[in-house]
Design a protein around this nucleic acid. Sequence first.
DNA 1: GAGGGATATGCCGGAAAAGTAATACAGTAA
DNA 2: TTACTGTATTACTTTTCCGGCATATCCCTC
Lengths: 109, 109
Amino acid sequence: MPFDFNRETLKLISDRFKTLAEPMRLELLHALKAGEKTVSELVEETGAGQANVSKHLGLLHRHGWVERRKKGLNVYYRICDPMVFQLCELVCASIDAEVESRRRTLRRV
Amino acid sequence: MPFDFNRETLKLISDRFKTLAEPMRLELLHALKAGEKTVSELVEETGAGQANVSKHLGLLHRHGWVERRKKGLNVYYRICDPMVFQLCELVCASIDAEVESRRRTLRRV
DNA sequence: GAGGGATATGCCGGAAAAGTAATACAGTAA
DNA sequence: TTACTGTATTACTTTTCCGGCATATCCCTC
């Protein structure tokens, strides 16, 4: 077991969850699943403002979810750790479980 | 694949991450790992205010992470879906990976 | 029913974070 | 150098959320 769950560690973990707790950032990560892309491409794809996209990418980069590479005027971002998709899949499963649980509750089964 | 990642789905997923993006809630979940506990016990264990603990538990409950059971004056909370600990372990692994990555970067390896 | 303990809820102030616009910075081309 | 493009950063506004206080609600005991 690499961690004991003191306050400091819990803060680290929650910070990491917080990074994923924004639809726009998830959208960016999902867009990058297909391969590395420039900021402009991501702006185009998401329809969000350039400053906004840039800030979210910066945050994802600071937290180690994406890496970047400069090429001329462009900056290419790419997924650093595909584990993020495992996390999303687990969360999706938990959403399924929640929906199913509520269904059972409603049916009084 | 149960989900396609449209805006609505991304909102659902991010909401779920957001629920875990708070040290206090992680601490509560961790405390409940040992078994179901009352609000008072959790207040005692965490040292937080009663209203605060109650609100966090309510949020965790609304999002399907914990279940509750009333017994006399007390309300017993318990983990609903142990998957949350899988998520934490994955995040811990990603923290390790990030630390290691930064180490490599600093060493220019 | 009255009193008291356990839990939930509503309100408020402050901190954190998101979005936007404007601007600064870097790289390219002429 | 000058002009232009892509990206990052800053300042500002608005929204969201946590924590604390007071209070309401529920349930037990007497």
